[in-house]
C-alpha cells in the first residue's frame, strides 16, 4: 500500500539513538495548537508557494492546465481548481512553487530511508514521524519491515492516536517507539487537541504490556503542557504502567513559527524555550514521582 510523505530528514540527531534518517508521513488526527509541522496535518498534498524567490515571470500561470494560477504582484492559487498536478512546479525556473507531499511505494520509501546506511553504524537507523504514523499504519509497517530486512534499526515517533490493529502490526517491526504523552487530563486534551486521550493512554498500556521498547516524551509547550500538575500527573501515570519507564522532557522549540508565517497563519504559542532552571524544576518533579530513567541530552 502506497503512502503520502512530506519530508525526508537525513542526519537526524534527535529522533532516536545514533544518526538516523527520518521520514515524515502526511496527515494527523490531532490538532495540537503548537504543532511543529503544520504542513503535515492535512493528509493530501498541497501546493506551496515561496514569494521571496519568485521572479514573477508568469510561466506557471501560462502552463497551468486548469488555470488555477493568477499573477498579480505575487502568484495566487485557486485551491479549488488546483489539482496538484505539478505542471507549474516543473515550469517554475526559481523553485518558488513546490508540492508538499507526494505518494510513494513502501519500496521507494525504504530506499529513501536506507540511502544513509553508511552513517547508521550500530546504534543509528530509520525513524518514521509525521503527521501521525498510525494514520498510514499499513504503509508504515511495510516500510519498516523492508528496513528490518536490511538489518537496520527502526523507530517511530507517534502520538498513539490510532487503532489497536495499527500497533499490533507495527510492534514486531519496530525496535523503538518514541511516544508523546502531551496532556493527562482527558477534558483538557479534548479541549485543546480536538480528541480526548483515552485511546492514547490505552495504546500506551498496550505497548508497555507487550514488551515494546518505549521512550516516553512530553513536549514542554509554554502555556499548554508546562504546568507542574500536568507533568506530575503524566509521571505518575507512566510510572504506574511501567516502573522502569524511560522519560524525556522535550524543551520547546519556537523555530516552527517561520512555517506558520509561510502559511500565513498565526502561531498561538508565545515565549521561548524553558531555561535550564525551569527544566531542573521539572526534573525534580520526575525524581519525586520515582521516574527511574530520566533522559537528558
Amino acid at each position: 500500500m502506497n503512502g503520502t510523505i512530506f519530508e525526508v530528514k537525513r542526519f537526524a540527531v534527535h529522533d532516536g539513538e545514533g544518526l538516523r534518517t527520518t521520514l515524515f508521513l502526511k496527515g494527523c488526527p490531532l490538532r495540537c495548537p503548537w504543532c511543529q509541522n503544520p504542513e503535515g496535518i492535512d493528509p493530501a498534498p498541497a501546493l506551496w508557494y515561496n514569494p521571496t524567490v519568485c521572479l514573477g515571470c508568469g510561466g506557471c500561470a501560462a502552463a497551468c492546465p486548469n488555470r488555477a494560477l493568477t499573477l498579480g504582484g505575487r502568484i495566487h492559487v485557486d485551491r479549488k481548481t488546483c489539482t496538484r498536478c505539478g505542471t507549474c512546479v516543473d515550469r517554475c525556473p526559481a523553485g518558488a512553487l513546490s508540492l508538499c507531499g507526494r505518494e510513494v511505494s513502501p519500496r521507494a520509501a525504504a530506499d529513501l530511508l536506507l540511502r544513509d546506511r553508511a552513517f547508521f553504524g550500530t546504534d543509528g537507523g530509520v525513524t518514521l514521524s509525521g503527521g501521525e504514523v498510525l494514520l498510514q499504519w499499513e504503509f508504515a509497517a511495510e516500510v519498516l519491515a523492508l528496513c528490518r530486512e536490511e538489518g537496520v534499526h527502526t523507530a517511530i515517533e507517534t502520538s498513539m492516536q490510532g487503532p489497536r490493529a495499527a500497533l499490533e502490526t507495527l510492534l514486531p517491526v519496530t525496535d523503538q517507539f518514541l511516544v508523546d504523552i502531551k496532556l493527562l487530563d482527558a477534558e483538557e486534551h479534548r479541549r485543546l487537541l480536538g480528541v480526548d486521550n483515552r485511546l492514547i493512554l490505552d495504546n500506551y498500556r498496550f505497548l508497555c504490556e507487550n514488551g515494546a521498547n518505549v521512550l516516553t516524551r512530553t513536549p514542554l509547550i509554554p502555556g499548554y503542557t508546562d504546568s507542574e500538575n500536568n507533568i506530575r500527573s503524566i509521571a505518575r501515570f507512566i510510572r504506574l504502567v511501567n516502573p522502569e519507564a524511560r522519560y524525556e522532557l522535550l524543551n520547546f522549540n519556537p523555530l516552527c513559527r517561520s512555517k506558520y508565517s509561510a502559511l500565513e497563519q498565526d502561531y498561538p504559542v508565545t515565549g521561548g524555550a524553558l531555561s535550564p532552571q525551569e527544566l531542573e524544576r521539572f526534573y525534580t518533579i520526575l525524581a519525586q514521582e520515582g521516574i527511574a530513567h530520566i533522559i537528558k541530552e
Binding site: 542526519f11 529522533d15 511543529q36 509541522n37 514521524s129 522535550l250
Partner: peptide, 9 residues
Amino acid sequence: TVRVAGYTA
C-alpha cells in the same frame, strides 16, 4: 540546517 527533534529548518 538547524536540527531539533522531529523537525528541521
